[in-house]
Design a protein around this nucleic acid. Sequence first.
DNA 1: AGCTCTTCCTGAAAGC
DNA 2: TGCTTTCAGGAAGAGC
Length: 286
Amino acid sequence: MPELPEVETVVRGLRACLPGRTFLEIRLGKTDFIDDPAALEKSLPGSRIVDVVRLGKFVRIVLKTGSPPGPLPRPPLHFIIHLGMTGQLTVARPSDPIAPHTHCFFVLDDGREMRYTDIRRFGRMLLVPESGLGEFGGRLGKEPLEIDAEEFCARLGSRRARVKALLLDQRVLRGVGNIYADESLFRARLHPARIAQRLTKKQLLALHRAVREILATAIEMRGSSISDYVDAAGNRGEFQLRHHAYQREGKHCFRCGEKIRRIIVAGRSSYFCPKCQPAPRQRRIV
DNA sequence: AGCTCTTCCTGAAAGC
DNA sequence: TGCTTTCAGGAAGAGC
């Protein structure tokens, strides 16, 4: 499932081959994950790709639209894609076999095409004008790899919610999902159901550091391939081999040997070591 | 404010 | 064996 490291890996792959290319035509299959399919069909053909960047778990393709109608310079248009649970953005040759559940084809002027494949269609696509980009980004929290320690502590330490819920909340931090929340909490030795406000400064600092280290390492290893994730070239990542907690229920903790447990926190499966990550003292969960 | 439940969707896995 | 049920989860919205 694509979280920050997986999306970053996809973006790096796309950035290596898309900028400078122009969309010639697009073909859409199922469109229920697209905010405005007609707008895509209208705006993408003839648009030139200026850049590809990541915004939390979103891929943002910066476009210079075609057919200049007047003398005024046209502001860029942003083609924004969320991969949901099972979304894949790949660049292929038209003759390459088409994976099942491939719903969109974006034909490029170099003879290749970008394809969007999404089994469960939890993804999302939308166009955001330059004037709306600030508002779109404003609804998202800070980049986990950019936020400094003080702001991290302030953002989380002031909240009464469970620390896991805050890590997953895209308005607090953008890009962390279930895998990296659990791995970060394991590294920081914090139980997922701990109330953020009750953490010490030292613990918050440890979490800040853990999140950054986990994400940086995961990016180096090109993400975690748990189910469907592949990068822009169709390759799997390798960070799943380094997971210490996620999906390791019943297996022994690499640190202390205790069996990893799974509980539900914030409506999500949460894997942790009951010895390394002791439960909060009062109202303990499970 | 923050929690739980529901919805979207498919395929894998568990249950019978 | 083969069918049916359950579950997983990112995000948004409803309701408490």
